[in-house]
Amino acid sequence: MALTRDQLAQRVAQEFQDGYYVNLGIGIPTLAANYIPEGMQVMLQSENGLLGMGPFPLEHEVDADLVNAGKQTVTMVKGASLFNSADSFAMIRGGHVDLTVLGAFEVDCQGNIASYMIPGKLIKGMGGAMDLVAGAENIIVTMTHASKSGESKLLPQCTLPLTGKGCIKRVLTDLALLDIADGRFVLRERAPGVSVEEIASLTAGELFIPGDVPEMVF
């Protein structure tokens, strides 16, 4: 079975470590905040100028001056700090954020990522994504493995305009966890009940399959 959105978020959260500063992109990455393991301290960075983002506010706590990068109203945890956009991106571009998680339309086996526009169809802009992928060492891309019509999004070469070049080393899809190394995808884990063959058939870029590919454990 392909992973649900919540399972994807859960698997992302398994990459968290105690004391990590983490930037979570809009969508599935944001959900990962719900699965921070008990007893572990993780501080969420929101690139509009907040370190220590908390959950959505209660109705009476809503504050128009306190939003996240998706412009949603949020709260702050104890120990949070606030800063301007240049300082925020100094953290990101200076490599101070321990883990970045973001979505994508396509990735390829050279570590390229395309996530911000579909020419002639969708132009929303890159927001902070180009800074995040260029600045972070440790990035996880979360995405669906293939389109609804079954076309692979893990490609030999991205077809859409790039968000970043040669910067992605780890991809989590609804079917598998893969690393990108030496110009190919390396299959690390399978979603429960998903076969290596199914993953291989939906991966257009070169795929290396180690002898043992364990199922994800939740």
């Binding site: 690139e47 301007n84 956009s85 240049a86 925020s88 991106f89 990101i92 571009r93 911000y116 526009m117 132009i123 802009g125 890159m126 927001g127 902070g128 994504a129 180009m130 800074d131 260029a134 600045g135």
Partner: peptide, 25 residues
């Protein structure tokens, strides 16, 4: 279309008298 961090830095640098800067972004 300008990356968010580049945009913030373009403004910061402009205000600080720095005409240009290098970035990986």
């Amino acid at each position: 279309l300008t990356p968010q961090g580049t945009l913030a830095e373009k403004m910061r640098a402009g205000g600080a008298g720095i005409p240009a800067f290098y970035t990986a972004t």
